[in-house]
Simulated assay, not measured.
Amino acid sequence: MDINIHYAFLPHTDPDAALAFYRDTLGFEVRNDVGYNGMRWITVGPPGQPTSVVLHPPAADPGITDDERKVIAEMMAKGTFGALTLATKDLDGVFDRLQASGAEVVQEPTDQPYGVRDCAFRDPSGNLIRINQLN
């Protein structure tokens, strides 16, 4: 079977802040930026890789009630709603760049007991971004 991950979705609370983080800080390329009814869907991804992340307004999901929107907003603010794991050959360099940009540090580069070396940040919307060291 030949299946690839094409899109992953993360909510955003501020499209301009999300764009600045993923494009300017992480170096992702913008693949699409679509507005509709005052909302924006921004598709970004690492240059040269086919997988994309769609940054979307959480309120646009069909069938979401007002109570559910409130819970989603609360979870996003705590950093417990969306998450993404990235990987790099230069974890310390990426960590330094993100920290210098003012990104919220959750965990400095650490050798985990389960064999992974990684660090963690929150994006401007509170999504947890873990970054693993590639060997």
Rank of each mutant, 00 (worst) to 15 (best):
72 I>F: 00
35 G>C: 09
133 Q>M: 03
119 C>T: 09
40 R>P: 10
63 G>P: 07
61 D>W: 14
135 N>K: 11
127 N>M: 05
88 T>N: 08
66 D>H: 11
94 V>W: 00
6 H>N: 15
111 D>L: 13
130 R>V: 05
25 T>P: 05
110 T>V: 12
46 P>F: 12
117 R>H: 04
20 A>F: 06
32 N>G: 14
98 L>Y: 08
72 I>Q: 09
56 H>R: 08
23 R>E: 14
86 L>Q: 03
30 V>M: 10
117 R>W: 02
64 I>H: 10
78 K>F: 05
9 F>D: 10
30 V>S: 05
127 N>F: 01
11 P>H: 13
126 G>I: 05
128 L>H: 03
3 I>L: 15
57 P>F: 02
41 W>L: 14
41 W>H: 13
97 R>P: 00
90 D>V: 09
128 L>F: 01
7 Y>F: 15
72 I>P: 02
22 Y>V: 02
109 P>S: 00
90 D>P: 04
48 G>V: 07
9 F>N: 14
107 Q>P: 01
128 L>I: 02
126 G>R: 07
114 Y>K: 04
81 F>E: 00
36 Y>H: 14
15 P>L: 06
73 A>G: 06
21 F>K: 01
21 F>P: 10
13 T>Q: 13
4 N>A: 14
128 L>V: 05
50 P>K: 12
23 R>W: 04
37 N>W: 06
33 D>H: 09
135 N>S: 11
129 I>V: 14
52 S>E: 15
41 W>N: 13
91 L>R: 11
81 F>Q: 10
73 A>M: 01
9 F>A: 12
71 V>I: 14
66 D>I: 10
88 T>Q: 01
7 Y>N: 15
16 D>T: 13
124 P>F: 03
128 L>C: 08
86 L>F: 02
129 I>G: 06
107 Q>L: 15
82 G>D: 15
39 M>G: 07
88 T>P: 01
117 R>P: 04
11 P>K: 08
8 A>D: 06
38 G>R: 02
135 N>Q: 11
40 R>V: 05
82 G>S: 15
12 H>D: 05
91 L>F: 00
103 A>Q: 07
21 F>T: 06
113 P>V: 02
17 A>E: 12
29 E>G: 15
101 S>Y: 04
44 V>A: 07
27 G>S: 11
44 V>S: 06
73 A>E: 12
79 G>K: 08
42 I>W: 03
80 T>H: 08
19 L>P: 03
53 V>Y: 00
106 V>M: 13
38 G>I: 00
76 M>N: 00
43 T>Y: 12
101 S>T: 00
4 N>C: 11
108 E>D: 09
95 F>T: 10
36 Y>G: 11
103 A>D: 04
73 A>L: 02
110 T>P: 04
46 P>Y: 13
114 Y>G: 09
96 D>I: 01
28 F>M: 15
18 A>F: 01
133 Q>C: 06
9 F>H: 15
121 F>T: 04
72 I>W: 03
32 N>V: 08
112 Q>P: 01
14 D>P: 04
87 A>H: 05
106 V>P: 09
130 R>G: 03
23 R>I: 03
69 R>G: 12
71 V>Y: 03
16 D>R: 12
29 E>P: 10
65 T>I: 04
133 Q>W: 05
61 D>Q: 15
102 G>D: 02
134 L>N: 02
81 F>N: 11
127 N>G: 12
130 R>K: 12
40 R>D: 09
14 D>L: 04
